[in-house]
Amino acid sequence: MGVIKSKKWFLAFLLPGLLFYILAVFYPIEESLRLSFMDWGGIGEKKFVGFQNYIDMFHDKVFYESFLNNLIYLVIVVVMQLGIGLLFAILLTYMTKRVTLVKTLYYVPCIITTVAIAQLFRSMYATEPMGLLNQFLQSVGLDQFVTSWLADIHTALGAVSFPEGWRFTGMYMVIFYAALVSLDPSVYEAAKVDGASELQILFRIKIPLIKDIFLLTLTMCLTGALRGFDIPFLLTNGGPGNTTELLSTYMYKKAFSSNQYGYGSTVAVFIILESILVVFILRKIFSEKEKK
């Protein structure tokens, strides 16, 4: 028999998945790349323009603004998702009762549809009628902070980033929790016998032991944030002005609102390259640590 051992058979089993991957992921990327060298309004012939779109992109003020906004968005989202997720996971390991209930409750935001989340936060941020957030501020006497959070250029970017962070905190919490409870207790019990404090055990033993999980979650979280689109788009559509414009919303606008499919694809290619670069750097950092 030896079906499992034969390398050729692996290929046959991989083929459907590979075909699907090529069609659903690789082909669109290739098309974007091809379109990024073209000037095309959606009707008629595509015109080859070489690197003109890329040159334009690096002279585009809004592009830089979106890039910067995207970085701020990324920091907020990553800090919330990983930071708070990890904190909750650690706290959860000290809980003895109702762990599953808490886990489930915190996971709920992940399964709510995006549109509902956007609507939820739109109402919370609103001043007309007074939203939850502003009501809260009023009731604790912080009236000077009451504002229409999505319309105010100083708060809009933060306001569109927060829901995305909130939404997946529970998911990362579950991942971290699973990793933490799967650790072999004998390791840190030994440390405890040697007189290590809880904090020392946490930072010196537990967290280093789940390093691989960090690589995974960071990759997911960073690439997710770089591609962030739905909630900001639904909440403000990049506005007011371009204060909440992210690279992906800008790409969408250029391609589908402005009919500049070529230029939109150029921004798309930039997002892909950026994501690949981030993953590459992450792997590099983590593998270097391993060598030490």
């Binding site: 739109r122 941020y125 609103a126 001043t127 007309e128 009628p129 504002t147 229409s148 959070w149 999505l150 319309a151 105010d152 403000t236 506005g239 007011p240």
Partner: peptide, 21 residues
Amino acid sequence: FNDGFAATDYATAQSMFLDGK
């Protein structure tokens, strides 16, 4: 314009008027 009009949608703007706000 009303405060935060940038984040005010069609239905809200209309009901503000109809509610006398």
